[in-house]
Design a protein around this nucleic acid. Structure first.
Lengths: 341, 341
DNA sequence: TGCGATCTTGAAAGCGTTTGCAATCCACTG
DNA sequence: CAGTGGATTGCAAACGCTTTCAAGATCGCA
């Protein structure tokens, strides 16, 4: 019944091996400063010699850090998310932290229970990736001074630390690029309407048009939900117009793929007949044909930075709210060209 | 420094509230049988009234279950993996288990340390998704009777519990489908050579050809590494032949996408000029144009079943090794048709 | 050389649970 | 009605580690 416990090396074994008390070992392990150098040395060597690995459970039970952070994601299996998680994962591994994963559909279980489980010493902090309705628990977390960082979403409050890309500027630049290529009718495939990233991109698109003396035409804007299927259908609608756009700016790469399909299904060519521009620069964007011109978000880096930011809050939960905005870059490949004529 | 502990509800509070000893509460919580019904009742009601949530750390420290399982994946952000994880996640949530995520690149850190961390009471069991080189630690795990289940890979030993699809049969059927459509020259894009799933699919392809009196031509087999980019290049090579295949069977959907790109870049049409058949049926397969005809693996279910199987081993680590093979289904969409002429 | 101040360090008290052990019940048996 | 044995239940001892407390060491400076 009870799984046999492996003969684990404990802090006491180290203490014995190094000839110090186990409290001293603990202090060394936790980088406590007042320990004589020679003992510190002896402890570390005993640690490596015996191959000691701390027991996170005991650690956090005793009131220390658990060395785990929770990550809340809406889903998995999405390249965009995969990239961000990669960054998170790397940064965590470097700091010897473990990752507890939660997918959003779990939230349907009592949310209070969820937050409680997480904050009850199970994790030292929480990472929220494009949360959908975080208001409910974010306020609680903030009041409890429980460390957390929101990734790629913002604007619902003014106390949540955030890491996000400069969506507005990125969309503005991308749209300008299309305009400078000579396009005058540029379609826009919008993302999930409640996400700030989608909203900002839309704003950037619109602002760029207007800044260049082009009229913003709402009928050129369709909804793609950040998904390939819906974007395919939405693009069809765009192409059905008597005056179809000569370029389409999609809110993410997946949407761009949907648009590409729709264009090709009509026998039109990319970029000769229609230009397509994406957003995110997921790995697939480079291997698709024609290779997708897109806005590169530093996805992996966003993950890494979020972790680093989280650590600062774990270190000092009272630090003031910090928000980090990352630069993007336009990656020019083969899916955009000057309009035909 | 030390994060303030929230005023957590403990087992003792429940005991007090229900008027029983805390050991009894523990027994109720763990579904121990010899507890009088009325007390059991009182305990449960106290639990819900106070909103008690067990502390996993303390639980596993005390030698019980940690209610966490570890999941080892090669990467994230891959739809195939996303689906499997979804199943795992659902099944775990139902059983009130938590998920600890490890991505393979972490394995580069001392592997012994990795296995130790995991088995030292941190998790109750381990799920290995398409592990790349598991031999090293699998034997240790098995000897320690540490519960684990391997998903979608097998053949490296005869003691590892496994959940996998019937790759051979699936590939056989898919190939036969193409043959029955009238194709005689069928290209094959092979997956990662060291994965049993890739090997089985290749065998199935070959067997189907030979079963229908078609010669197996090695030059029609190219490597796609289960990736879109390499498959694109590989398909180019196939199409460069004086007698290009009239159909291409890709080892997974991503490879199929690469093949589709290659075909289209030549101005050829799918499925009129060339048929493409995939494997996996990731969500994208349905939203791509033309919609991809592919072999559906019950990905989500594989995840669920793996969890269930793992639970049986957590229950009884000495159970004999069990292997579950899941059926697949051919999903016919729009990317395959009889050969031209 | 002496005294307070600052370092170091070990002992011990938990952290929230599980579980072995032993005592207490309780229903029957004869 | 005493005796028997299983069903219940409480106590206390871990589990491995952090942290407080106080005592012993050491150091600086007069």
């Amino acid at each position: 019944m009870k799984s046999k416990r492996l003969n684990r090396v404990t802090i006491k074994d180290i203490a014995h091996e190094a000839g110090v008390s186990y409290s001293t070992v603990s202090r060394v392990l936790n980088h406590y400063e007042h320990v004589r150098p020679d003992k510190r040395q002896r402890v570390w060597s005993a640690v490596t010699r015996l191959g000691y690995v701390a027991n996170p459970q005991a650690r956090s039970l005793a009131g220390g850090r658990s060395h785990m952070v929770g990550l809340l994601v809406p889903e998995l299996g999405n390249a965009y998310i995969g990239q961000v998680v990669r960054g998170i994962d790397e940064a965590l591994a470097e700091a010897q932290y473990e990752l507890m994963l939660y997918t959003t559909h779990r939230q349907r279980t009592k949310e209070s229970t969820f937050v409680r489980t997480l904050t009850y010493g199970m994790t030292d902090g929480l990472l929220l990736l494009v949360p959908t309705e975080p208001q409910a628990y974010l306020e609680t977390l903030h009041e409890e001074r429980f460390p957390y960082v929101v990734i790629d979403h913002q604007g619902f409050d003014d106390f949540s630390p955030t890491v996000i890309a400069k969506n507005y500027q990125a969309a503005f630049d991308a749209t300008r690029y299309l305009i400078e290529l000579g396009h005058r009718r540029i379609g826009f495939i919008r993302g999930l309407k409640h996400l700030s990233s989608a909203i900002e991109r839309h704003k950037g698109y619109r602002a760029a048009l207007e800044a260049h003396g082009l009229e913003y035409d709402p009928s050129l804007v369709v909804d793609g939900e950040f998904l390939q299927g819906p974007s395919y259908a939405a693009t069809q609608a765009l192409l059905d117009r008597p005056d179809p756009p000569t370029a389409i700016f999609a809110s993410n790469d997946l949407s761009a793929f949907g648009a590409m399909d729709a264009v090709r299904v009509r026998g039109l060519s990319i970029p000769d007949d229609i230009s397509i521009l994406g957003f995110d620069d997921i790995p697939q964007a480079a291997s698709v044909r024609p290779a997708l011109t897109t806005v590169r978000q530093p996805l992996v880096e966003m993950g890494r930075i979020a972790v680093q930011l989280l650590f600062t809050y774990i270190e000092d939960p009272d630090r003031p709210c910090e928000r980090i905005e990352l630069d993007t870059a336009l990656v020019i490949r083969d899916s955009c060209a000057p309009p035909a004529r």
